[in-house]
Write a protein that binds this DNA or RNA. Structure first.
Lengths: 214, 214
DNA sequence: AATACTATACGCACTTTATCGTATTTATAC
DNA sequence: GTATAAATACGATAAAGTGCGTATAGTATT
C-alpha cells in the first residue's frame, strides 16, 4: 500500500530537499505541498486523502503548531510529523500538546525519515534520540514559559497559603492549619491575587502551578 | 573506547539472552550482572566503573524503578536504560520520573539494542517507537491511576460546564457562554460535584483534570 | 534614621458559591 | 409506549469568597 503524504513548509528549497529524500521510496507518494498552515487546511478541504503530513513549524499566516491542532481536530486519523530545524523545548512541547505524532529534525537522512514515517503509521512515534531525551525531561519537569516565571515573587508565607488553597480548603480551614486568623489568610490571598493578577482561587492555583510556584 | 555495561535482571535466561545480543559488538563489555536492585547497589559500591546499566523493572528486594532512582542520585553520570517486557503507562512513567535515559523492550534485536546504547551515551534517549508514542501521550496527559477513571461518568453537558469552570469563570459567565440560565449552571454543577464527590470548583476541576475528563 | 516590605489582624460591603427543593421538556432505552 | 435519564429552569438560604480600608510590630535595606 502506498502512503500518501503532504509536505507543509514555507521554504521551497527545503520542500525540494524533503521530496528528494522521499523519492527513493516507492511506498511513499507526495500528494501535495502547502506553503503554510492555512494553505494546508484549504488543500485538505478539497483533497483530504492523505495519510501523513510532514509539517514545518515556523510559517506565516498559520504556523505548524496551530495547523497541527486544527488538522488533528478535523481529521484525527491523519498522522503528523513535525519536521523542523528547531529543537527547543518550547516547540517540542507545544507540538506534542497540539497532537503531533512525531518530531524529527530536517538534517535527517532519507532512510531514517522513511522508517520514521513507517513507524508512525504503525502506531508508533517518530523521534530522534535527542528529541526523545528532551521529551523525557519535559515529562519529568513540564515546560513553562520562562518570562513570567521571574516576575512573580511570592513570599514564603504566601506560598504556604497558596499550597493550602490548592488542596481545596476554605479560608477557615487554611487559617486553622497555619494557626492564623481568617482575616490574615484573606489578606494574604488578596496580595497573592494582586501579584498573580487573578481574581479567584482557581485561577490563582492554576497560575501558581503553571509557574512551578507550588 | 569500550562501553562498560551492567545488566540487572532476576531472570538468568533473559540475562543470557541480553549478553548474547551484546556479544556481537566489540565496543561493548559486560562488566557485571546483578539479580536485583539491592545486588546492583552493592556491586556498584565496589565497582562503579560502568557507563551504562540495562535494568529490568520487576525484581525482588529492590525493583528497577527504585534502583534507578538511587543509582541516579549516587552516580548521576551512569546512564540507565530500562529493558523489560512490560510497556504499560505506569511503568514507563515511573521509570522516566526515576530518571531513566531510555526504555526498550526485551524483544529488541541485537542491532537496535546496540544503537540504542550508543545513542544514549551520546546524549540521546533510547526508545522504540511505540514507547515514544506512549511518552508523548503521557506528556499530553500525565498518567493517572486507571481505577477511578472508569467510575466517573459525566454527561457531555456537564463536561461543557466543567470546561468553562476550569477557565476560572463564574456561574454567570458560564451561563452566558453556554447561553443557559444561571440556575441551570448551578444545577449542573451540583450534579458534577455529586458525581465527582467534591464540594467546590477547585476540587472539581482538579479531579476532572486528573481523570482526563477535561 | 528613614524607608520599604512582611506578617499579622480586624471590619464592612458586596458577590459568588454550595445545597437544598421542585418542576418541565426532551432524548434514550427497554 | 412507558420508564429513565438528561437538560433545562426557578427560588431560598447559608456559607464562603472577594475587595477595600486601616493598623501595628518586626525585619531588612539603604
Amino acid at each position: 500500500m502506498i502512503t500518501r503524504i503532504a509536505i507543509v513548509d514555507d521554504n521551497t528549497f527545503l520542500i525540494r530537499a524533503v521530496e528528494e529524500k522521499l523519492s527513493f521510496f516507492e511506498d511513499l507518494e507526495v500528494r501535495f505541498i502547502a506553503m503554510n498552515g492555512k494553505d494546508l487546511l484549504i488543500k485538505l478541504e478539497e483533497n483530504n486523502n492523505v495519510d501523513l503530513i510532514l509539517m514545518d513549524i515556523e510559517m506565516p499566516v498559520i504556523n505548524g503548531i496551530e495547523a497541527t491542532e486544527q488538522v488533528k481536530q478535523k481529521y484525527p486519523h491523519i498522522k503528523i510529523i513535525m519536521l523542523t530545524v528547531f529543537d527547543n523545548d518550547e516547540n517540542i512541547f507545544n507540538a506534542i500538546k497540539a497532537g503531533a505524532d512525531g518530531y524529527l529534525l530536517k538534517e535527517i537522512n532519507a532512510g531514517d525519515l522513511h522508517s520514521g514515517i513507517l513507524e508512525t503509521l504503525n502506531g508508533g512515534a517518530a523521534m530522534n534520540p535527542s528529541i526523545a531525551l528532551k521529551t523525557l525531561k519535559l515529562l519529568r519537569n513540564p515546560f513553562v514559559e520562562e518570562k513570567e516565571k521571574e516576575e512573580i515573587k511570592l513570599t514564603s508565607r504566601e506560598v504556604d497559603v497558596l499550597e493550602q488553597l490548592s488542596k481545596g480548603l476554605s479560608y477557615n480551614a487554611v487559617a486553622e492549619n497555619l494557626i492564623l486568623s481568617t482575616g490574615t489568610i484573606r489578606k494574604h490571598i488578596e496580595n497573592i491575587y494582586r501579584k498573580l493578577q487573578v481574581h479567584n482561587k482557581l485561577e490563582a492555583v492554576q497560575k501558581a502551578k503553571r509557574n512551578n510556584i507550588i
